[in-house]
């Protein structure tokens, strides 16, 4: 009895390990075929670090810090901050009503309005803000406004989804109580929904600022305003030392902005005693 049991266990184990082996083999073959299809030459991978090393050491180093201190460049940095600021504010202001429309438990228009808001938020998310920027440039011409609009859409896509998730996880009892008492949809939103999500919304808003600012540093790459344009120009002219300086500046600005927003979020958590953001 026990020997047949052992036999069965062994057999099962062997079968499973065979299955696992075949799966790994199939994965490996798939990977190889994919790399062939995409025309990736793995032999280049061996020399990659070498080439990247020499490239960084000879062309990107030393960074041309003098370039990023020029007044015209600094003006574009300020422009970047302006764009991120406007896009975050406009995006958050638009994302809140959209999220309200899109949330299944609180939507004032559960039919068409909910679906339309969902499609809008998902569409804004699905398309990269860089592509939005190009689309807006095609209509509005080069400049700051298309950049702000593209970033606003990106902000709506990013914050909108988090807002919807937040609204959908509220306690429905106050909402239902207000509805039963005959409150209108606006009253329900302002006094039933908003107090429950206010802290989380502020936290998400601060987090969104980080994301939008990061995008704003490069959204000008195709001519949508801000410092991205200088990145494009120096990269096209192979002025790698200037590219290096710009990249380092972007990294520094992002870190500063992240430190500030981290402090703001911790302060918010300390004041309200609520966990502001799960992620």
């Amino acid at each position: 009895m026990s020997s047949t049991n052992t036999l069965m266990v062994l057999q099962k184990r062997r079968r499973r390990s065979l299955l696992r082996f075949l799966l790994l083999l199939a994965l490996g073959a798939g990977l190889w075929l994919t790399l062939q299809y995409l025309n990736v030459r793995l032999e280049r991978f061996a020399t990659l670090f070498d080439r990247l090393g020499t490239l960084l050491a000879t062309r990107y180093y030393p960074p041309d810090f003098e370039y990023i201190m020029r007044p015209r460049f600094l003006q574009s940095v300020l422009e970047t901050i302006h764009m991120a600021l406007l896009a975050t504010l406009a995006g958050l202001l638009l994302a809140i009503p959209l999220a309200w429309l899109a949330a299944f438990n609180a939507s004032p228009l559960p039919g068409v309005g909910k679906s339309a808001a969902r499609v809008f938020i998902t569409g804004a998310r699905a398309i990269h803000e860089m592509i939005w920027a190009i689309v807006f440039i095609m209509v509005l011409g080069f400049g700051v406004l298309p950049g702000v609009l593209a970033l606003t859409l990106g902000c709506i896509g990013f914050a909108g989804k988090l807002f919807v998730e937040e609204i959908e996880s509220i306690d429905d009892a106050p909402v239902e109580a207000m509805r039963a008492a005959g409150a209108g949809p606006l009253a329900v939103f302002f006094f039933g929904v908003l107090p429950q999500v206010r802290t989380a919304f502020i936290g998400i808003g601060i987090y969104t600022w980080d994301v939008v600012f990061r995008s704003a540093t490069v959204v000008g790459f195709f001519g949508a305003g801000g410092m991205g344009w200088y990145l494009r120009r120096t990269a096209d002219q192979l002025q790698s030392d200037r590219v290096a300086a710009i990249i380092l500046l972007i990294a520094a600005l992002v870190v500063v902005s992240e430190v500030i927003s981290h402090h703001a979020r911790t302060a918010l958590e300390g004041r309200t005693g609520q966990r502001v953001l799960a992620r």
């Binding site: 509005l140 700051v144 406004l145 702000v148």
Partner: peptide, 20 residues
């Protein structure tokens, strides 16, 4: 105030209104 500053500082001078 920040928005007004941003609009006046960047959006108005930095956009190609004539092309639009």
């Amino acid at each position: 105030a920040l928005s007004v500053w941003a609009v006046q500082g960047s959006v108005i001078p930095g956009t190609d209104w004539r092309r639009m």
